[in-house]
């Protein structure tokens, strides 16, 4: 067992009837990292997260939080978990502070000072005594973060945390996550279907497709992956040119798309390519770079899979 792993999933499986929603998920989340669950809608991200926090029962497998089994010792395991599952729903007829008091009472050892500290951390000091029904979604999100952090958890879980937030709110939440992960050594787990978001907040992502774990990659791995960039060349006779290039420059991956040549290579190959084409008397209209976005890579990875 890894000492640093705050959350371990072992063969976590959920079946409803004959359908397998989540299939044998096994992964570790370390302390101090922001870990993303990435996948299209219906891939099983939310189901997985709900199994970790005990809202949905597991058909098979085990989730360990700081080595404590969620299935066998639910109460103890949950003392280490702070979570916002989907929208942070609060009691609207209570004030923000009263909502925090409710949460504080459920955990042993949360003092008034700690509540004040957390309120300050999320910047709600001025509005904490207002009723929650007068809060904007962004403020409710902050209050949600506050209640999740109140008992100093080791694992922080956010399920689709940016749903309905404006760009400023998203950015704010992202900064909180990064801060608490680094400063307090908390393992943060985030699920999202928005890759651009994950790119900015996660250290590692698990790509989930149709309930299966396809890959776990660090963000830098994903960014520097081979085939990250491509050169797009527009020529007079693309079919002929493609044949010529495959003999003249062996080892280049060339494909034909919409009458244009797509060459998987970096910027440094352009001069050489240009020279080859000119010497071969091929009419060139344009040569340009295209950055393959993370999104394209993600689609590449999950292409052709059906939603279960």
């Amino acid at each position: 067992m890894n000492e640093e792993a705050v959350l371990q999933l072992r063969n976590v499986t959920k079946k409803i009837g004959r359908r397998t929603i989540v299939d044998n998920l096994t992964l570790d989340v370390q302390r101090g990292e922001v870990f993303g669950f990435l996948g299209p809608n219906g891939a099983g991200k939310t189901t997985t997260i709900r199994m970790i926090v005990g809202l949905i029962s597991m058909t098979k497998g085990e989730a360990l939080i700081k080595g404590v089994s969620v299935r066998k010792h639910f109460e103890l395991a949950m003392t280490h978990v702070g979570a916002i599952v989907e929208n942070p729903e609060m009691y609207k007829f209570l004030t923000g502070y009263q909502n925090l008091v409710l949460c504080a009472r459920r955990h042993a050892g949360v003092t008034k000072e700690r509540i004040k500290e957390v309120v300050k951390l999320v910047g709600l000091e001025n509005r904490i005594n207002d009723k929650v029904k007068r809060y904007s979604l962004g403020m409710r999100q902050r209050l949600g973060v506050a209640q999740a952090l109140l008992h100093k958890p080791s694992v922080l879980i956010f399920d689709e945390p940016t749903n309905g937030l404006d760009p400023a709110g998203i950015r704010e939440l992202r900064d909180y996550m990064r801060n608490v992960a680094q400063q307090e050594g908390i393992g943060v787990i985030v699920s999202s279907h928005l890759l651009s978001e994950m790119e900015l907040m996660c250290d590692r992502v698990a790509i989930i497709q149709a309930g299966k774990l396809i890959d776990v990659r660090t963000m830098s791995e994903l960014k520097n992956a081979v085939g990250h960039q491509q050169i797009i060349v527009e020529v007079e006779n693309p079919v002929h040119t493609m044949e010529y290039l495959s003999t003249a420059l062996p080892g280049l991956a060339i494909s034909l798309q919409d009458g244009k040549l797509e060459i998987m290579a970096g910027r440094e190959r352009i001069p050489e390519l240009n020279r080859t084409l000119v010497y071969a008397d091929i009419d060139v209209y344009s040569i340009r770079m295209a950055n393959l976005s993370l999104e394209d890579q993600f689609l590449e990875l999950t292409r052709g899979e059906q939603i279960v």
């Binding site: 005990g54 809202l55 978990v81 599952v85 729903e89 609060m90 949460c103």
Partner: peptide, 14 residues
């Protein structure tokens, strides 16, 4: 109805 059931159940209480 309020959606607070998640808040209530994701806590250290059976």
């Amino acid at each position: 109805s309020w959606g607070t059931i998640k808040l209530l159940l994701v806590g250290p209480a059976s």
